[in-house]
């Protein structure tokens, strides 16, 4: 068993209000502690904003500014520029957002911040839907998944945000999973040392939203990585791809079978999703080989 190797400075406190068993709280704990005390965060409406806690409490030891849903990256930019004007270039500015605030309504502001290469670390807690409002589809929701607004299953694929961000040629884009916390901490550490816009997308299996058992979020996240549905990789400067897990050891079906949102799938649909994952995996291998 791999020990979790990071320094817990207690920057994320007990008393947060995540659902019992939620791996977003776990991820936030690892990320905040890796970033350290010299940091300011902005958070857009999302599970993350709720997890941080309601006034007058806060689960975070670092200052947090709550902004609007579509303006996470713009808000982070404003904080960074203010800190620069105060001669504090080394303070890390974190933007914590959900997939709705990143893939959908916040994409315009994120694209602009990336184009300006603002010195921010953007964390997207991707639970593949508007889970904080009860579970509706976002453009991050995968093909065939049932949500409150796709009761028969989504008919289109998940948006490939990483490719969109890669087109901005920012210093670092990475995926991370709560099943691989050392990898997550290493990526945060790496991002912290880089100047410019860094984006880390963390897959968060949502217990109620995905229909995952209360004790199965980490397992589900691990199956997402091991089946290749959510590969762990990095893109540097938009062109240099590095795969962090080079082997797929699980079938896509083993991942899908964990989740209520896929319970209705036919064998054909599972095959189609497997074929999609196979094709994307081949493309990633191709990118990582530098072709």
């Amino acid at each position: 068993m791999e020990l979790i190797n990071y320094n817990d400075e207690e920057l994320f406190q007990p008393g947060h209000v995540a659902c019992a068993g939620c791996v977003e709280a776990l991820s936030m704990r690892v990320i905040l502690n890796t970033v350290g005390r010299d940091a300011v965060a902005t958070v857009s409406p999302s599970c993350g904003a709720v997890i941080c806690g309601a006034y007058p409490f806060s689960a975070t030891k670092i200052p947090v500014f709550h902004t609007t849903l579509e303006s996470g990256a713009a808000s982070a930019s404003g904080i960074k520029r203010a800190l620069l004007s105060q001669g504090k270039p080394d303070t890390t500015v974190l933007c914590l957002a959900g997939d709705g605030g990143t893939y959908d309504i916040g994409l315009q502001a994120l694209s602009s911040a990336a184009e300006r290469n603002e010195d921010i670390l953007y964390i997207c807690f991707d639970n593949e839907g508007y889970m904080n409002t009860g579970g509706q589809k976002s453009s991050s929701t995968p093909l065939a998944a049932v949500t409150g607004s796709t009761p028969a299953g989504k008919t289109t694929r998940k948006k490939n945000l990483i490719e969109i961000l890669a087109a901005h040629r920012i210093p670092l884009i990475a995926t991370a999973s709560p099943s691989h916390l050392n990898d997550m901490a290493a990526k945060v550490e790496k991002a912290k040392a880089l100047r410019g816009t860094k984006v880390i997308i963390v897959l968060i299996p949502c217990l109620p939203g995905w229909g995952v058992a209360d004790n199965a979020a980490v397992k589900t996240a691990r199956l997402a990585v091991e089946s290749g549905v959510f590969p762990l990789f990095e893109v540097e400067d938009g062109v240099h791809y590095t795969l962090n897990t080079e082997q797929r050891t699980q079938s896509v079906n083993s991942y899908l079978a964990q989740q209520g949102r896929y319970r209705h799938l036919s064998a054909e649909q599972v095959e189609q999703i497997q074929a999609d994952v196979d094709a994307e995996w081949q493309r990633l291998l191709w990118c990582a080989a530098g072709r």
């Binding site: 902004t67 713009a74 808000s75 930019s77 904080i79 203010a82 004007s85 502001a109 602009s112 184009e115």
Partner: peptide, 25 residues
């Protein structure tokens, strides 16, 4: 001597104004 930020919309401009002001700028 001023940090000039040229975002993609007035919406983001005002969002950055608010957070920069909240940071003491």
């Amino acid at each position: 001597d001023m940090e000039l930020l040229t975002p993609e919309s007035e919406h983001s401009a005002m969002a950055a104004c608010i957070s920069a002001s909240a940071t003491g700028a």
